[in-house]
Design a protein around this nucleic acid. Structure first.
Length: 423
DNA sequence: AAGCAGAGGTAAGGTCTC
DNA sequence: CCAAGAGACCTTACCTCT
């Protein structure tokens, strides 16, 4: 009996958001379609025409009635594009205006978050029914530990990958790509090898032939900045990265990052597949329709700021968390970002208190330039049940009640005082 | 009294990902 | 004026405590 090979799969849904729209509007199959545009509805953001309310019975809308990218106005970005649209160089995170220049004839649709969540639940529950050790990696991808799943070793994982791929298609009508490898790092790369609707199986011995020729940028964790720095050092491919002394990488990228780069270039990664995790922070942020001035647009900003705080408080309460640290984020018209944090004595999920703490942060940040974005963040989270336990412990209780009482009074006093001068 | 080392917390900025 | 929103994690600096 041979020992079992560690087999980790990475599963990535193909053009997830766009494919969901193609299920709803089959007449768009094969056409360039982009999904996105920020939080606005398509109707808000378009100059003229459109199919009306997305999500209605629109199967039979004539093609001429769909809104076109060339008519888009606003500040959004592309979330996903169909493969037909990608032919034109349009892709995720690209500004809508830039995309409109590349492919003006593309049809633009808003994200239907409800549908996306529904399909995400469906594909993930399909996966866990077959292979229970699944790690959630956002809305449209997961890692799966095949090692001990029946059939997970056959064909290096190909048999199980095909089974899961088929089950997902039957449950959702959507396709995905799967990579199976000895670890998460390689599995993630492998899932891209045969996109869309592909499977690729990678063994340790494939490192030099399949991985080393790839650009460093293909490593999950090496983004545009690190890639550019590597390029300046004359390092383009993962193989070239693997050829560097660890000490050299540490000297240029720091102790942690340098050592990590050396490891991943050699295909080494022992991170486990993690099925449960606690959130570290929650936030709400919004980009304004136009840049706002801290003094001139004081009233509008105040309304937005309070709204963000209240939404964040709702999020915390709905998910059952309280926060110890409240922070703000500003993006100025020149795209520079400023953040401020404030840690408080008690954990809170209260909109008024969050607004007050965030207001204090706002006083510590320069407000001379126009603002493009405003955000509020809660960190230092604790589960509300734990929070209540703390509150209910006999000695803590009295103290907390006194502190809360004082805080409430302070909050009212300070808010009344400061709301007039902030904006 | 001053200095140092290590741990741990807070704050600000930055990078990366989907 | 092309460049969203949400979240995780890293680095550096600074402070406090021991």
């Amino acid at each position: 009996m041979t020992t079992r090979l560690r087999r980790i799969a990475h599963l990535d849904m193909d053009a997830f958001f766009a494919s969901i729209e193609l299920l709803r509007y089959p007449q768009l199959k094969g056409l360039p379609v982009v999904i996105g545009g920020g939080r606005r509805t398509v109707d808000d953001a378009l100059l003229a025409g459109g199919p009306g309310q997305p999500g209605r019975a629109l199967r039979f809308i004539p093609l001429t009635d769909f809104p076109l990218l060339k008519n888009y106005v606003g500040r959004g970005v592309i979330t996903t594009a169909t493969y037909a649209a990608r032919q034109f160089g349009v892709g995720s995170a690209m500004g809508m205006m830039k995309a409109a220049k590349l492919c003006p004839q593309a049809i633009v649709l808003p994200v239907d978050f409800e549908a996306v969540r529904k399909y995400a639940r469906l594909f993930k529950s399909t996966v866990t029914e077959i292979a229970p050790l699944m790690e959630d990696r956002g809305i449209d991808e997961v890692y799966i530990d095949f090692t001990d799943v029946p059939g997970g070793q056959r064909g290096g994982g190909r048999v199980l990958a095909r089974l899961i791929q088929k089950a997902i298609f039957e449950a959702t009508g959507l396709t995905c790509s799967v990579g199976v490898a000895p670890n998460k790092l390689l599995a993630k790369m492998a899932s891209e090898f045969n996109k869309p609707h592909g499977i690729s199986i990678v063994y340790e011995a494939d490192l030099q032939t399949l991985v080393w020729p790839l650009k460093c940028r293909k490593i999950n964790g090496i983004g545009p900045k690190a890639d550019e720095k590597l390029a300046r050092l004359g390092i383009q491919t993962i193989g070239e990265l693997a050829a560097q002394e660890k000490a050299f990488l540490v000297a240029h990228f720091g102790k942690a990052t340098g050592a990590w780069m050396h490891e991943v270039a050699w295909g080494r990664d022992n991170r486990p597949v993690v099925t449960e995790s606690e959130p570290v922070s929650m936030s709400r942020e919004t980009t304004f329709d136009r840049d706002l001035h801290a003094v001139r647009d004081k009233a509008a900003l105040g309304v937005i700021f309070t709204g963000l705080c209240n939404k964040l408080a709702e999020d915390l309460q709905r998910k059952g968390y309280a926060a110890k640290t409240i922070g703000i984020k500003l993006r100025y018209d020149d795209f520079k970002i400023a953040t401020r944090d404030q840690t408080c004595e008690d954990f809170t999920a209260d909109g008024r208190l969050i607004r007050q703490l965030a207001g204090q942060c706002l006083k510590r940040v320069p407000l001379d330039k126009k603002l493009r974005l405003l955000g509020v963040r809660a960190s230092g989270l604790v589960k509300a049940t734990e929070f209540e336990k703390l509150q209910n412990s006999a000695q803590e209780r009295l103290f907390r009640q006194q502190a809360l009482g004082l805080h409430a009074m302070e909050t009212i006093a300070k808010t009344n005082h400061s709301s007039g001068q902030l904006f």
